[in-house]
Design a protein around this nucleic acid. Structure first.
Lengths: 332, 332
DNA sequence: TACCAAATATGAAACGATTCATTTTTTTCT
DNA sequence: AGAAAAAAATGAATCGTTTCATATTTGGTA
């Protein structure tokens, strides 16, 4: 049994392909024929072939999302929000992941272009302009999230990483801590650097030598974060940990739970991105929250602006994170 | 600047479309021409138009996944595993979600068919055969996960829900509990019923009247689970809760944390699907684990069997869950 | 050099929809 | 009823690939 096409409908109804097409796309059809067509479509179990349609219309009503890791709740939650909004507007979402593999990221971008997505949302994993060269000659709207890439003339939606990191660190210092460790992502170049910068600036502004600022870089694995956390705990002087991304926050909380470490008596901790953390873990973590819903909202909003007017001047949007106080910073 | 096509490559190289196509698909080409083509493709920033290709080859190298909720970690984790394996085999994954809306589920199935996915993976939300009628006349391989639909002649991959639920309940009863509450999903008809059946059978086998078995149905919202949990706590007689899916487990743990309830002294609890639960929450939860990696593995394996031989006789696979003991069942 | 088989290259037809200039049918008005 | 205007239907051309039967080139051998 072969898939039914428009021609089969023509044969069955005696109407022409143009009329069938008009029906499928909601044009004006005589009532008699409308019924005829509805019946035929039902009878033949007809489905539009979007590949044939896309070929000629040059629109696919499809948005690609390229994410580094799907099993990172920070990303998947945001994607969930974005998908939901796109669906409402009649767009389908195609999700692919790069797994922090630049080769795979490029293959995915290429795949998306070949599949003619109408727009592309990327959580970039590289900070080198040439890794996104592929996109330069392509006139698909692209929005980058979570990370900046110097020299790429596209839209970016970011959060005030340096500022919030400064705020966290300053707060910890003000509570009397002098030896503080920060855990950042080694891959996530630009964003990590911002968080580091804010961290260091707080040391400077409080006149504390930067040699007291212990910096740890991890890759995007909870296990690795766990190990690094252990290493930090063995550093006797350190009294506070700033887990400056979601993965390291989860890793540290696992660790503290596992070793039954009394928080904040033994060690103080601040986390990043509260997704199921403060609800599950006690004491309640002091944690930075990036405005995920807002980011999703802004992304979709901007996406449609770009779809309507692709030549809009590129912009960088910076949204504000919030520090939510729990009970995990001790006052010394 | 228009998108480059094969014809542009022909013009630039002086070769024919057939040759270009052969090159793109890895055929034998003279070295001289191979270089010529590589250069031209680079220069023109050419990308294959998969819509044109798909139209004629009738293959899209694409698998659709239709999931009820993406922000349910039990599903998203499994999808992550499946996506990973499909990627390795050169297939792209398109994810859509139904949000427990049957209309949306059907629209998505229709979308997938129109977009000619080579295969389809569905986490069904209905247990009525006619809700999947769309698929009957379609010769795309389909695998259903997590839930059975009576009368649908397709492959299913499930877990031993009744058996494991029996095991849990029996264990709780053996520890002296007589009044036990179970929370199941009201939507998730077949699977929930299995879990309920096992629950009740344990009561019967232990000669405890079923009036002691308190049954609570929730929809797929953590907040609702939280509320139901509260209601259960107010039932003075109940000494143990069996949160028989991931959402209700999370909801209950939130609640117990929030109210600072001493577990298992005040109440005993068993959960379902340990994703970030036992690592974050103390005391360590006694919890049922479905073999997520195995399910993903089996799904992909079966998918490729069906792709190779679509007329294979349909099967129902049942994998085994495991009860992992923690410290949340009190002995009375 | 001439011949032949193997290796490459050619290009028209096909895939299944939409488009749009043209034709046919229906409606409205006198 | 007949003419004009409006509405609906027609169908050939088109989108950018792959396919495959045919034609051309290559290079080894007599």
């Amino acid at each position: 049994m072969k898939k039914a096409t428009i021609h089969d409908i023509c044969d069955l109804t005696g109407l022409s392909s143009g009329t069938v097409s008009k029906y499928l796309n909601g044009g004006a059809i005589k009532e008699k024929n409308r019924i005829l067509l509805a019946d035929a479509i039902q009878k033949l179990n007809y489905h539009v072939d979007e590949y044939a349609r896309g070929l000629i219309t040059n629109k696919t009503k499809t948005v690609g999302i390229l994410v580094s890791r799907l099993d990172n709740l920070f990303y998947s939650r945001m994607i969930f929000d974005i998908e939901e909004q796109l669906y409402r507007k009649g767009y389908a979402t195609i999700i692919k992941e790069s797994s922090y593999d630049i080769q795979k990221e490029q293959k995915s971008i290429s795949w998306f272009i070949s599949h003619r997505v109408d727009a592309l949302i990327i959580f970039p994993i590289s900070d080198r302009r040439e890794d996104y060269k592929l996109l330069e000659e392509v006139d698909v709207p692209v929005i980058f999230l979570d990370n900046y890439v110097e020299g790429v003339d596209r839209d970016f939606i970011l959060t005030n990483n340096e500022q919030i990191s400064y705020e966290v660190t300053d707060c910890v210092i003000k509570k009397g801590h002098r030896h503080i460790a920060i855990i950042v992502d080694g891959n996530n170049a630009y964003t990590s650097n911002c968080r580091l910068k804010g961290f260091k600036r707080a040391f400077d502004d409080n006149n504390i030598g930067e040699e007291n600022a212990k910096i740890y870089k991890i890759n995007q694995s909870i296990d690795y974060a766990y190990k690094v956390g252990k290493e930090i705990l063995s550093e006797k002087k350190v009294t506070a940990i700033f887990a400056a991304n979601y993965i390291s926050t989860v890793g540290c909380v696992y660790l503290l739970n596992e070793l039954n470490i009394s928080v904040p008596k033994t060690i103080s901790i601040v986390g990043f991105d509260d997704i199921m953390i403060t609800s599950l873990y006690r004491p309640k973590l002091t944690i930075v929250n990036q405005p995920m819903a807002e980011i999703a909202q802004k992304t979709v909003e901007r996406l449609f602006e770009l779809l309507a007017e692709p030549s809009l001047k590129k912009q960088v949007f910076i949204l504000n994170s919030k520090l939510v106080h729990g009970q995990t910073i001790a006052t010394i």
